[in-house]
Amino acid sequence: MDHRTESNTITQQDKDAVSSYVVDKNGVKVRMPYQMIKLVEFDDIDPKELIDIPHSARLQYRLLLMDAVIRCKVEFVKRKIIVIYNHPEAKNYKDKISQQQLIEFLAKEGVHVKLDKMTERDFDYFKEHYTYAFEPEVIRESVPYGYTKEEWQKMKVQTEAKKKEEHDKKVKELEERWGEGKSAHKDDDKPHDAPQEKPGGFVGMIKDAFGKLRSINN
């Protein structure tokens, strides 16, 4: 499935959707394709239906093939399926899928979920997916080769402080190099000219015109 070809039918709504920006906590303006979406959890899946890990992985792959499924997890050991999806009421114009359609999809894949073992909640894409991926938790601690955990604990603070100092020094140097009044860098943040080589004369004119025409038709 090529996910990139369906966009020829762009509407005003699509435009609004892709232009929706969110300001993250560091003050950076970032585009958010989704905002409030849904997380559904199907528990207590029949062990006969989740055959083994390879089948669970393939089911996960098939769920992910759908554009409306943003993330999912098929957990063979816990007999659980978690799907984060773009539901029909979500305020965006990307592909959508309803809970019912998801259940039907899973049934087609041989997994018949129990409705009484299903829970669903709102999922904040920005906070729970995007922000986590950019600032993930530390879940373990490695140590340098040739050192024990205890040795590393003693050295760590000093090593990290030294690194930070080196980094800050480098940034300062860069700022001085690129700073105000450095004429060589005054246009760095401006878009550069496209340095394309173009055929001149009649051939170039025809090629350009033909290209524009094709784009308009699309």
Binding site: S7, N8, V18, K94, F210, G211, S215
Partner: peptide, 25 residues
Amino acid sequence: KQYSIPAKEWGETHANWSYASDKLH
């Protein structure tokens, strides 16, 4: 794709742009 700009919108916001105009001659 989730973070892409549809071709038409790109064309509207980038004057004189077309797929062909990107191509090398």
